[in-house]
């Protein structure tokens, strides 16, 4: 299949970028990233600069891939990362625009690659449980109800890719922060630091200049792990809990 691509090219975070047209011959069984690999191989053969894009596991679990394909983060298939999109999703002769995640907090490193360390800094502010390291505890030493365990796991499924920020009209990171805060707030291990965690992570999120949540639901629609907007409702509850207990 023959494709007409419009790809965002940008040398670094300081220079302005632009959309550049490329034609590529691909196979419908290729993954989207393999199609870009083919284009890059051709660019390298011609002595041109290959297109920089993030990728790692290529099996939908690491959260590294990050393309806005035709205006949708992670492309046309719901609950699917970019690396799991295949070219059969597109008709022959399709014209596809590929852009990076766009947010003040995610500066472009090069082309389609952005710096998402703002999310790491939010995690470092409180998205963990402080435990003494040592021998691993017995697996079932702390009983957790099935429903609670499943809910916590649904939030824990967040791979931190940042598609929620990319999709949000306000570039808000509330779904990401909500998933992390909710996951630990539901588990007994997370109780000790529960309120301090919520306040610190919210303060860190604000310090990174992410926008606020306007409840549009764009984040939930593109999340490759289908994290529910309930995470945001819970984050709001955790915020009010922190204010009420004077620990904000």
């Amino acid at each position: 299949m023959r494709l007409q691509l419009h790809i965002w090219r940008q040398k670094n975070s300081r220079e302005p970028g632009r959309l550049v047209p490329y034609a590529v011959q691909a196979d419908e069984h290729m993954s989207f990233l393999e199609m870009l690999d083919v284009l890059n191989a051709e660019l390298i053969r011609k002595g041109e600069d290959p297109i920089a894009f993030d990728h790692d596991c290529r099996e939908g679990i690491c959260g590294a891939c990050s393309l806005v394909i035709d205006g949708v983060p992670h492309g046309p298939r719901a609950a699917t990362t970019t690396c799991q999109i295949h070219m059969r999703e597109f008709p022959d002769g399709a014209e596809i625009t590929i852009e990076p995640w766009r947010a003040y907090a995610f500066p472009v490193v090069k082309d389609l690659m952005v710096d998402r360390s703002a999310l790491d800094r939010i995690i470092a502010a409180g998205g963990y449980v402080s435990v003494r390291t040592g021998a691993a505890p017995d697996a079932n030493a702390i009983p957790i109800g099935k429903n609670t365990a499943e809910k916590a796991f649904d939030y824990a499924a967040c791979i931190g890719c940042g598609a929620c920020v990319a999709a949000c009209p306000n570039a808000s990171a509330m779904l990401f922060v909500g998933a992390k805060v909710s996951h630990l707030a539901l588990l007994p291990q997370g109780q000790v630091e529960r309120t301090a965690r919520a306040s610190r992570m919210i303060a860190a999120m604000d310090a990174e200049s992410f926008g606020g949540c306007s409840n549009h639901g764009e984040c939930e629609a593109v999340c490759p792990k289908s994290i529910s907007l309930d995470a945001i409702a819970k984050l709001n509850r955790e915020f009010m809990r922190a204010v009420a207990t004077g620990e904000s």
Binding site: E99, S172, G212, E220
Partner: peptide, 20 residues
């Protein structure tokens, strides 16, 4: 104002999925 500042560079193509 904060939300506008959070995305200084608009997308060339953006398709709304859920928002009204």
């Amino acid at each position: 104002a904060r939300n506008k500042g959070a995305r200084p560079h608009a997308y060339a193509v953006k398709r709304a999925q859920r928002s009204t």
